[in-house]
Amino acid sequence: MTSHKRWGLFFFLAPVVLWLFVMIVLPHIDLLVMSFRFENDEGQMQWSLNNYLAFFEEPIYWLTFVRTAIYSILVTFLTFVIALPLAFYITKVVNPKYQGFLLVLLLLPFWVSELVRVYGWMILLRESGVINHFLLKAGILRQPIEMLYRDSTMILGLVYTSMLFMVVPIVSVLDSLDNSLIEAAYDLGANMWTILFKIIIPHASPGIMSGSIVVFMLTLGNYLTPNLMGGKNSLWFTEQIYNQFIASFNWNQGSAFGFLLLVLSSIVVWLGLKLTRQNLKKVVQ
């Protein structure tokens, strides 16, 4: 009986383990090794920390890095601020009959690839785009303005792309919030804000945290949206990695940058969990 079970476990686990190992662990080991290799003056590869030193010595690298981190945190926060009322509306306010319909509406944009969605935004926002056209027609603007390639536009795009990953976990935690808790707080003299900060957010915090982790990681590692909507000014760290791999063909430097980004996201997630006094086990549930 036990050997049966063991075989079953092995049978079902094997593809996952294989996938993890071949597609994730092996390439990462290779990248890690590469990031510590450096071509010396004689054109020979040798072990060195030069790739990591280059990051700290060149301000453009670490400034981009910090900028990416701060903007990712900002995007995560903005997504949360928009997603919470939205999730509350879907779970508690709207007639349960329409709940599924609203969730499908949220999901609908994700049936189209990110690329197409970003191009959609570009059509709306560019100098000769839809919004400028209507503003000119309405006489609000005399000259078209370029709305693309600004930090704010880039953040708008990133928030839009991340929305679903924040709304869904918050919807699922708010679903489990007993309405009578809200009513009890109201009955005991609380106003809307106290209910929000004392009841709703503490209850929803595992969902908020898991949504935030996903959104933060996706934003940090996003290449397409910053590149297309932020243009050359976006200065997103993933672009630096891309440049090293593709433009400079310096795979060793690129690997080092990749690992720095991995360390950064791990540290920020860990800090976030520590600050909100939660553990990863509860959050990923």
Binding site: D178, S180, L181, E183, A184, A185, K198, I199, P202, H203
Partner: peptide, 8 residues
């Protein structure tokens, strides 16, 4: 009915 004590 179910008391609605705040679990947090």
């Amino acid at each position: 009915q179910h008391l609605a004590l705040f679990p947090m």
